[in-house]
């Protein structure tokens, strides 16, 4: 996914002189062809994220579309004030390509996990947040990103993620994608949570329960219309994300649903990483399983919501 993302940026830059690439201290040979063919628009400026974001803002203020790439947690935590002030306050066209969103770097420990990046980016006005599920969706997104006005946080998954998206048309920023429709369960997800949810829906189907899957490759702006329309048909709604349950996709869904009457007669549950720094290593899939982000656990969560007694109207005495 990362390679396809960067390759697409390179392809676009060949014909669009506005496009500039800024990296920190990336792996040897990254975008060598970009550097060779367009050296004046290729910058590798070291392990200094505050400066990288400020420099990118300055380039964007002069009309460039800047693709800035480094590891997700360093691009979100380390330079948050620069992201807020230099990018969001000025509303400039800088795209943050954030490698290893979620728990991709599970073996490297909690300093390298980006498990609250969506939550903190969501809180910033003017910010757009995307988390494609697979490489084809990432490529479609990058093509759509060039002319978007304002900063974008791009959550990049591990790579070689199973291809599950089927759309081939233009990526529409801000639109959710219904992958399965209809059913008493609605699974709401983003990024590689989609693969988990599709497998969970298969498992539920085998158990005789039909589940809809609504994919949010854009988390902000949040497509509340799509959530509303698909929630109406469901009895149980489960959000699934490779992220803390605080303030991310589950938070966005909960905020919207709580302000409608949709939860009055529906059960709702957020699946994700609880409010902890994960204390184990292993690998991404193992860590996701540990916190219930797996087909089996999501299916079981959905079943438990369906099995719960229907909500009774509660009126204060």
């Amino acid at each position: 996914m990362r390679e396809n993302c960067l390759k697409t940026v390179y392809e676009l830059a060949k014909t669009d002189e506005r496009i500039v690439f800024v990296g920190s201290d990336l792996g040897v040979g990254v975008l060598a062809e970009f550097k060779r063919e367009m050296p004046d628009r290729f910058f590798m400026e070291g392990v200094a994220e505050q400066n990288l974001v400020g420099v990118s803002a300055g380039l964007a203020m002069e009309g460039h579309v800047v693709y800035l790439n480094t590891i997700a947690t360093f691009l979100s935590r380390r330079c948050y004030e620069q992201v807020a002030v230099d990018l969001c306050l000025h509303n400039v066209n800088v795209r943050l390509i954030a490698n290893g969103g979620g728990v991709v770097y599970a073996p490297l420990g909690p300093t390298h996990l980006a498990t609250e990046d969506v939550a903190i980016m969501r809180a910033l006005p003017n910010m757009t947040i995307v988390a494609p599920a697979d490489a084809p969706e990432m490529i479609r997104f990058v093509r759509a990103s060039v002319d978007h006005q304002g900063p974008i946080y791009i959550r990049v998954a591990k790579g070689h993620d199973p291809v599950v998206t089927t759309d081939t048309g233009p990526f529409v920023i801000g639109k959710a994608v219904p992958m399965r429709t209809g059913g008493e369960v609605l699974l709401v997800t983003t990024g590689v949570g989609l693969q988990v949810c599709l497998a969970a829906a298969d498992k539920l189907a085998a158990e005789g329960v039909k589940a809809a899957v609504l994919h949010f490759p854009t988390i902000k702006p949040f497509d509340t219309a799509a959530l509303h329309a698909h929630a109406e048909a469901a009895k149980a709604i489960v959000t699934v994300e490779e992220h803390t349950i605080l303030g991310g996709l589950g938070g966005a869904a909960a905020e919207y649903l709580a302000e409608t009457d949709l939860l009055a007669s529906r059960r709702f549950k957020r699946v994700g990483i609880p409010d902890v720094f994960p204390s184990v290593y292993g690998d991404q899939n193992g860590m996701m399983r540990k916190y219930g982000i797996s087909a089996d656990a999501v299916a079981a969560t959905a079943q438990s919501l369906l099995a719960a007694r229907p909500k009774a109207a509660r009126v204060a005495a």
């Binding site: 910058f43 505050q50 400066n51 974001v53 400020g54 420099v55 990118s56 803002a57 300055g58 380039l59 964007a60 203020m61 002069e62 620069q82 230099d86």
Partner: peptide
């Protein structure tokens, strides 16, 4: 940093 980006 912003001024540097503008200068670049």
């Amino acid at each position: 940093p912003i001024g540097l980006g503008i200068a670049l």
